[in-house]
């Protein structure tokens, strides 16, 4: 056994760098991704849910849809794919990853390093966003196998993935905020159920025009409806700037709130008592 000598100490101290905020975030993102891969139960259920939506709704409604007014000539898979993608995007594993750090006490250990506080959570949020994009790619691959031919082509697919990343990162802040405030795995899991009303009280299965009563009202005020519409226009009719604009606006609406919630919760959590 050897020990670092006094002279080692001088040289390595001299080499100390102050990493930029961005560099710290990237280090933490890489680390978060690495641990996510080792704990597949954090993202595999998300893949199942999305694939399930795609297969079940396509199988159950795909053939009958042809007889519904408004669906003439529309490929149901192109109609249902955005739902499947958004359900993935709303289910970022960032909160669960953060809960693990809080439960293990590793979060405290990191607080004792010169790391910027925000990098502690942004790493997980970004890794969550990347995971969500990865799940979308799996779903897309399956959709292509089932005959998807997006009207907006490969550029449309890139835009769709950008949407996924934006929502994954922004909405991921919701579970992260809950994780920071409760430190509880169960509560964080609970918060991810917020995705149900967002996904189902929408034009998820039929276009908005066909919905009636309260569901129609709920779907009209639900931002996810506009995101779905934007993504559907990409899949079914090509680039439609108006619906893309509203889609982006809606994505920002459901992203900024949760993201700010995460930022504030981080401040509350790391404020020393």
């Amino acid at each position: 056994m050897t020990i670092a000598t006094q002279s080692d100490q001088v040289t390595s101290t001299n080499r100390m760098i102050s990493y930029s905020w961005l560099a710290q975030i990237l280090m933490m993102t890489a680390r978060s991704l690495r641990t996510l891969i080792r704990k597949p139960e954090t993202f595999v259920p998300g893949i199942f849910t999305s694939v399930f939506f795609l297969l079940i709704f396509n199988g159950a409604l795909g053939s009958s849809a042809q007889f519904l007014p408004g669906f003439e000539g529309v490929d149901y898979i192109a109609f249902i794919l955005p739902l499947s993608i958004i359900s993935a995007a709303l289910d970022s594993p960032a909160g669960q990853a953060l809960v693990r750090d809080l439960e293990s006490g590793y979060f405290d250990k990191l607080l004792l390093t010169p790391i910027k506080r925000s990098a502690l959570v942004l790493g997980h949020i970004l890794a969550g966003g990347i995971t969500v994009v990865f799940i979308s790619l799996v779903v897309l691959a399956l959709a292509f196998l089932l005959g998807l031919r997006p009207a907006a082509g490969s550029a449309g697919i890139l835009v769709l993935l950008a949407f996924t990343l934006l929502i994954g990162v922004g909405f991921g802040g919701l579970t992260v905020g809950v994780a920071l405030r409760t430190g509880s795995s169960a509560a964080t899991q609970g918060a991810s159920f917020a995705f149900f009303p967002f996904v189902f009280l929408t034009s998820a299965f039929f276009p908005l025009d066909f919905l009636q009563g309260w569901l129609r009202i709920a779907a009209t005020v639900n931002p996810v409806t506009y995101i779905l519409d934007a993504l559907r226009s990409l899949m079914i009719s090509g680039f439609d700037l108006e619906s893309l604009f509203f889609g982006i606006l809606a994505s920002l609406v459901i992203s900024i709130g949760p993201f700010l919630f995460a930022v504030v919760s981080l401040r509350v959590r790391t404020c020393r008592q």
Partner: peptide
């Protein structure tokens, strides 16, 4: 610290 805070993964 007393509780060893390490990421087990």
């Amino acid at each position: 610290l007393q509780e060893v805070g390490l990421d087990s993964l």
